[in-house]
Design a protein around this nucleic acid. Structure first.
Lengths: 336, 336
DNA sequence: CTGAAAGCGCTTACAG
DNA sequence: CTGAAAGCGCTTACAG
């Protein structure tokens, strides 16, 4: 059975295709009688008419489709929330959004054989040749650099501020010799570099030596090795900032295996505030990012860019917060 | 500047549009001279020619686009891996895949205004009216029921087997009175029901009473309440199966807060083997799912369906495994 | 208030 | 070996 077209609807309702198009697209103002209008709508419904997106795109010369290209990160709550908000904002502007999980296996160009899009949003920068090819095909290209949530005008992105907050928190507790537990996951390298850079910068500003950086994979052996290195240093490390909460949990396990007490011997602070952080023993201090605030800001920037706004929206104020728990709390003081 | 079309390429290389199409699509066999071929390819490259997907779809009457619609779950490693494999498999068949993160906010129908697709893959069943509308528009509709990894022909899906394995493991350790820590996250209800059903079925087969089910949100207070209920029962619960590892970590925190020892007083088993499970104190026994095996099987089923194969591929053998750690290990016995 | 006609860019049977 | 022409389904200026 052939596809139902607007001609079928026109025939079934006794009007021309012009009228069908006007009725179904809400054009033509009041020039079409209520009776005609109803007949057309009813016929379309009865026949299960779905307009051809290809024909419409070809005729109007524009597509209402926005494509979001995901980088090779593990998809977490922030990206998830971002996609949800982005879909919603674009829908409010009459656009539909789809997501490409291509993992850079194939050239992006292959996609253009299958679909026309109005704009492409990348969460990480595109390869220069891909970007150029898209622009030449008349596609708007928007890319958000990893971690630059505070916007290109701001001195520090959210990722850097994360590292800064960890160090400032530990320094405020009196720690002078810090360790940094880096991630072993290569996929998040861009974030990792920024977080560590923020920690380094904060150390410099506070007059501390840079943190002793050790990679910590998510297993006990790796954590124990890092702990030994930190404790063998002179002066010995008394506090560790970790790339994220999972790495911090590994550090806690390593400290316990080495017979060290937390926070008395070594304090620990993570990033993300995953559920396991709250439930760890001792409960993990961490830098929480407001997923929703972050996602909304990214979306606001992308939409402003898409609409050609002159200025970027102001960066959010309340993005990051240190959640103080037991791994950095002075013993016997439940309030600080 | 207007978009580059095949006519531009034809003009620039001194041939007709027919020839351009033949060269660029590899049709026309050997009837086109190597020189002509090269001139066309070179002109296309120089002009940055990208064929109009809309025009091609309209003319050929078929789209090479497959749409994957995600349900309202938190997107974890399994779905992530699934999408990656699906993209790859479809690409090998000349199709491109895009993903819709729409969260059911708007009717799916809105998407068809923006894009033509050949098939739609749903990870959860579609609403009947959506499904009917898509079929009437000539779109293949494939849906995978949540948890039915073992296929519709099998008696138990992977999710049910998960609950069964937990119970069988605890029973083998001598436990006769079991608790079940249910999730408080409504989004995963479909999984939760299946996992619990599997646990119940295993209890029945082993001649045990059904597990005492308590909901456990991811905070200490909720966990403590559940622990008190389990321990106040007569006979008291001596082992708890949790919906997943996060819930299990909450249970561990609740047990510790109540002064109970693990595993001596209460044993605990989770599902998923997240990094925090391995790093918990005591380390958490859990049912690990092979993300890769699961994703590949789902993809195999979808592809078989898409290609109209007569039979479903055989369910994977090695999908689930109990990873025994300290929370269920007899004290003083490091091997069992 | 409604219809006939053009044309978006492509592919492909057909003619040479 | 290559070109002229038709037609996919739609929207929209234009004519009535």
């Amino acid at each position: 059975m052939a596809r139902t077209t607007s001609a079928d609807v026109a025939r079934a309702s006794g009007v021309s295709r012009t009228t069908v198009s006007y009725v179904l697209n809400g054009r033509g103002g009041s020039s079409i009688s209520a009776g005609t209008r109803e007949r057309v709508v009813e016929a379309a419904r009865r026949l299960g008419y779905a307009p051809s997106a290809a024909a419409r795109a070809l005729r109007t010369g524009r597509s209402d489709l926005v494509l979001c290209v995901l980088p090779d990160w593990p998809i977490g709550p922030v990206v998830d929330s971002l996609l949800e908000h982005l879909t919603e904002e674009l829908a409010a502007r009459g656009m539909a959004m789809l997501v490409h999980h291509g993992r850079d296996r194939r050239p992006l160009a292959d996609l253009w054989r299958a679909v026309d899009v109005r704009a492409v949003v990348g969460l990480a920068p595109f390869a220069p040749e891909d970007e150029q090819a898209m622009r030449r095909a008349g596609i708007r290209v928007l890319a958000t650099a990893a971690g630059a949530v505070a916007g290109p005008g701001a001195a520090e992105g959210a990722q850097m501020q994360t590292g800064r907050l960890q160090v400032e928190h530990l320094a405020a507790r009196g720690h002078r010799t810090l360790g940094y537990a880096a991630t072993a996951d290569r996929r998040v390298e861009a974030f990792a570099e920024q977080r560590l850079a923020g920690a380094r910068r904060a150390c410099a500003e506070l007059g501390l030596a840079g943190p002793r950086v050790e990679p910590v994979a998510l297993d006990l052996a790796a954590a124990v090795a890092a702990v030994r290195s930190w404790r063998g240093a002179r002066p010995a490390v008394t506090a560790v900032a970790a790339y994220n909460d999972e790495v911090a949990l590994a550090v806690l396990a390593g400290l316990r295996a080495e017979g060290l007490r937390v926070p008395q011997d070594v304090a620990v602070v993570g990033v993300d505030d995953i559920p396991a952080a709250r439930l760890a023993v001792p409960a993990l201090t961490t830098v929480a990012q407001s997923v929703d605030v972050q996602a909304r800001h990214l979306v606001a920037r992308l939409v402003a860019d898409l609409e050609g706004a002159a200025e970027d929206p102001a960066p959010p104020e309340d993005l990051l917060a240190v959640v103080v728990r037991e791994t950095t709390r002075p013993v016997g003081d439940p309030t600080r």
